[in-house]
Structures are given as C-alpha cells and as structure tokens.
Design a protein around this nucleic acid. Structure first.
Length: 327
RNA sequence: AGGCCCGUAGCUCAAUUGGCAGAGCGCCGGACUCCAAAUCCGAAGGUUGGGGGUUCAAGUCCUCCCGGGCCUGCCA
C-alpha cells in the first residue's frame, strides 16, 4: 500500500470546511493507503498563538479526528512536536532548499502581507512541511489547492537531496480536489476558513442552535434564477445537501430549483436537518472520548511511538549520508 | 552596539497652542425578505501598548519598560 502523509494545524476549532474538505477524505484514504496523520503544532507556532492552550488544542483536535473516523489502529496519528526528527530533518533540508524558491511561495507572500510581525518560521514553513512528508518517505499527500506549490517544493527538495547525497527520498504526489469545497455561508465567494470572522465558519462541534442560525442566515439570492443556473450561496447549500442527504432528496430540491419555485427556507431546513444527522454521531463519539481524556493521550502516545520507529530509522540513514552525528 | 520612526474600538485612521477620546467600515439587535442580499432604524464597543512623572488638566510633554519597522556598525 502506498504511504500517505497529511497534516492539520491545531488552531481554532474544526469546521465544516475541514470536515467535508479534508477529514472525511482522510477517513476514506485509510482503506487503500498506509496513512500517517499529523497534528502539526510546530507549524501553528509560526504565527501568533497562545501557548497556554496549544497543547490542549492538539489533544482536542486528535479527539475530533478519532471521532470523525480516523482509526488510530489503522493510521499513525500523532502530534508533530512529539517526534523531534521533524525539526532535525528540516534543518538539513534548509541546506538543500533554494532561498529563491522560498521567496516565490505565494502563500507566504499572501499571509505575510497582512501580518505586522512576520517570523522567519513562517517563511521557512514549507521546508518543515517537506520534512514532515519525507521523514516517512511518503509518496502521496492529500492537500488543498493552496498547498500544491508546497508539495512541488517538497519534490524539488527531495530531488536536490537525492542528487547531492544518495537516492533516498521519493518525490511525493499531491492528491488534490477529492474533498468538497465548502464556502462561507456569510460570503459564498470565499472558502470557509477559521482565520476569517466567526460567522464565516460553522464549527463541527458548534451548538445546534448556533449552526441553525448560520445556515438560516446563509447568503442566497432574490430567487429568480432559472434552470441550472445557481448563485454561489445556493450552490454551496446544495453542496452541503449532497454531502449529507439521500440522492432522491437532493433531486427533489434540484427539481424545485429548476422550476423556479424553491423556497430557500425549505432548502435551509433540509440542509440543517441532514447535516445534523450526518455529524451527530461524530459529536456523540467525541463526547464519549472526552470523558476519558487519558485514553486519547494514550493513543497519541502510541502514535508517537509508531511514528518514531520510522522517523528515527530514516534519520539515521540521512545523518550518515549528510555526514553529521550522532551515529 | 548606535541612530530614527511607530503603537488610539475587531480593521483603517481622526482628535487645534495640552482642554469632554471620535468617524468610516465591520460586529450585534430590529424593520423589510420564503431565507438571504441591498436599504433603513437602533445599540454595543476603549486602562489611547504598560509603569512612573510634570500639570488645575496628558492620546498629546518627560522618563523607563514592552512590542513592531527602517538605517548604520560589529561579530559568527
């Protein structure tokens, strides 16, 4: 089975965009891949954050992932900073990474523009990401469109390392676009994101009334669209419906929309109802897990050990090739 | 290490010679709407980065600290 790596930052609460865009896909990928899922806390510290809650956020995110169907038996699930080889490999990669390549990373340019303090870590972030992936010699990386450039950089780093030292790392393939693209209900032109304002993201664990408020107030249109034309807001609601409701239900609503007599409030109610029955089991599983936090920590500890096994073995090889210790 | 500039509401910025801390946008509530959007009405929002000082009175002046940016120098 091909080896697959993906990471998620422990910042903010998991929202529907994460869930339908990435997590459900992660769950499916467990079937036909050797999956390694990492909570990347070392990435989270490159921008402003609260050290008081970071660790807790990481554990809680792990809980959310397990509740969502990431199986700690099948997958290696762990917290990045628990495996220090990530950082060691990053440093070595820093030395085979072109400075010019890093300056061309559009995500850095976009992000840093808006911030008043830009850390060197934020600039160097893609190199840590390359280390994350290649430390396990993973060959596949499910990512969003915005991360493809980073995977390409990872490939260049692998290539450079392999030619400078020895053939060791695979050139990983990005897996793009398998997850759904959920837009903000408040502004359907933008992707749902936790970095935006509160009302732009619907939390997976958010209380039900609050979820209903957000769906009910989702941006739509004057309702004069005919045929297959659909405004972005309505299309977004249909996306959510497709992800959670039966085909026949979706088709009924589509029919109404085509004929121009769809009441959006009905669509919204259906989206809410079906969404809740989709995520309710996840929420219940989380509740169960939260009752026994030490169990989650135990699972993370096991994940760490499994990750370390591969990581330390690979780092030993790398050190030899590069000519540094400890040997 | 030296020099210069900056820090006011969530964001962008105002505030006369020191004289009641404000606006726009956003957020929140309401009207309208099948739900929204737009529009209208309303409300909230602040230790002016922090401490100390001068003064009847400090966002404004002095001082120290914190944070950020730019320039010069030195070292690795």
């Amino acid at each position: 089975m091909p080896k697959l790596f993906s990471g998620i930052q422990p910042t903010g609460e998991l929202h529907l965009g994460n869930y339908f865009g990435a997590i459900t896909n992660w769950v499916d990928l467990q079937q036909e891949h050797e999956t390694i899922y990492c909570i990347v806390d070392l990435h989270a510290i490159t921008s402003d954050y609260d050290p008081e809650v970071l660790r807790e956020s990481s554990v809680e995110l792990a809980t959310d992932l397990i509740a969502s169907g990431i199986d700690p038996e099948k997958s290696i699930l762990f917290i990045q900073s628990d495996v220090r080889e990530h950082v060691e490999l990053q440093w070595i990669f820093n030395s085979v990474t072109s400075y010019g390549d890093l300056t061309r990373m559009t995500q850095f340019k976009d992000k840093s523009e808006k911030m008043d303090f830009v850390s060197a870590g934020l600039f160097d972030y893609p190199v840590l990401q390359a280390a994350d992936i290649l430390l396990y010699r993973a060959s596949r990386v499910p990512v969003g469109e915005d991360q493809v450039q980073h995977v390409e950089l990872t490939r260049r780093i692998a290539r450079k390392f392999n030619s400078r030292f020895e053939e060791f790392f695979p050139e990983p393939e990005p897996i793009v676009g398998r997850g759904a693209r959920i837009m903000s209900t408040a502004d359907p032109e933008r992707k749902m994101s936790k970095s935006d304002h509160d009302k732009h993201a619907i939390g997976l664990m958010e209380d039900e009334d609050s979820i209903w408020e957000k769906i009910k107030s989702a941006v739509t249109d004057p309702g004069n669209a005919k045929g297959d034309e659909m405004s972005p807001g309505v299309a977004n609601l249909f996306t959510l419906l497709e992800l959670t409701a039966s085909e026949s239900t979706v088709e009924e609503f589509r029919e109404d929309h085509r004929e121009g007599n769809l009441m959006y409030i009905d669509l919204k109610e259906a989206v809410h109802e079906n969404l809740m029955s989709e995520i309710r089991p996840v929420r219940e599983r989380k509740e169960q897990l939260m009752k026994n936090r030490s169990r989650v920590e135990e699972l993370l500890d096991k994940g760490k050990e499994k990750a370390k096994e591969t990581a330390s073995r690979n780092m030993e090889e790398v050190r030899k090739m590069v000519g540094v210790g400890p040997t």
